[in-house]
Amino acid sequence: MIYLQLFYNFFMTGLFAIGGGLATLPFLYDLSDKTGWFTHAELANMLAISESTPGALGINMATYAGFETASFAGGVIATLGLITPGIIIILLIAKVLEKFKQNRLVQWGLYGLRAASIGLICAAALSVVQISLIHFNLIGESGLTAAELFDFKAVLFAVLLFFAMRRWNNIHPIAFIAVSAAVGIIFRFAGV
């Protein structure tokens, strides 16, 4: 029964891929070898598509593989399989957290956790900046020019956006995202 197989395999991926996003990648490669539901090349395409569509890589891959194997119902079932372990575990944690919220040790643990949370977010932000604005990873290479290090068009736009968000801070982030898509197309931000 293909639906059951899809659900089971993506359930296992969802259960063991901790940390989200790219953490699912090794499991997806493994799944590709094991089942042949999708090829490594398709997985690479999916990485590109995931960066250009809403949603996380793991979810997108589940939908895609499910659809390729068993059409629309397959896509839905594979996606549900992937998110089910997370839902169950978070529901349990949420209950425990509500019960022990006043406990001193839990409070102290959360105090440390929040500092870690912002640390991880900053590290992730750095990698987004590196991809789209300043290519830190090139520092140290011989013959590096400023044009290679900075993406001038993007940096200029980023500065404009920064001040625009300051000035009109009651505008919804979605509006800024839409404008940025248009600017990206008009000024050919990807250079194609």
Partner: peptide, 12 residues
């Protein structure tokens, strides 16, 4: 191109 623009916005 659209998503290169969106990534800049997401940064900020």
């Amino acid at each position: 191109n659209a998503f290169a623009g969106i990534r800049v916005c997401v940064c900020i």
